[in-house]
Design a protein around this nucleic acid. Sequence first.
DNA 1: GCCAACGTTGGC
DNA 2: GCCAACGTTGGC
Length: 151
Amino acid sequence: MSYWLIKSEGDCYSIDKFCKDKKTLWTGIRNFQARNYMMKDMKIGDLCLFYHSNDKPSGVYGLAKVTSQSVPDPTQFLEKDEHFDRKSKKEKPLWFCVEMSFVKKYPSVLSLEDIKKDTVLKVMQVAKRGNRLSVTPVSTSCFKRVEKILN
DNA sequence: GCCAACGTTGGC
DNA sequence: GCCAACGTTGGC
């Protein structure tokens, strides 16, 4: 099983909304590298750190679990949707998503500042300068470290 | 709100 | 296939 970090803007789709929904299609990813991770490497049962960007503070707020294989992202075909993509055709969709199920919200937040200060976690992609990828792999040791700090 | 970083687009 | 222009992300 693999571990991931998935980003969401706090005021766009928050951990609290996710907690109410229990599960959601992780739609709206419009970056090929992030898409490829979801399409090819994510497996059912993988665990994902749920990260808020552009929040106070930005950081890890909760945990999600992958509960489906990748399927075409329905929002790419919705003309009124902000994620509509005119280049994508139903016969050959461009964008894919997986279903995420809510696991838990952590009792506290692991802020980006904390991640950068931690000797183990500072190698995480999210801590790197200029990082913009919204789906990134997380090593087992980093995942265990996050769980240990937050539980 | 600013701006650095970086992915994407399109002209050539 | 190069690269300048442009748009977006996201920390601060």
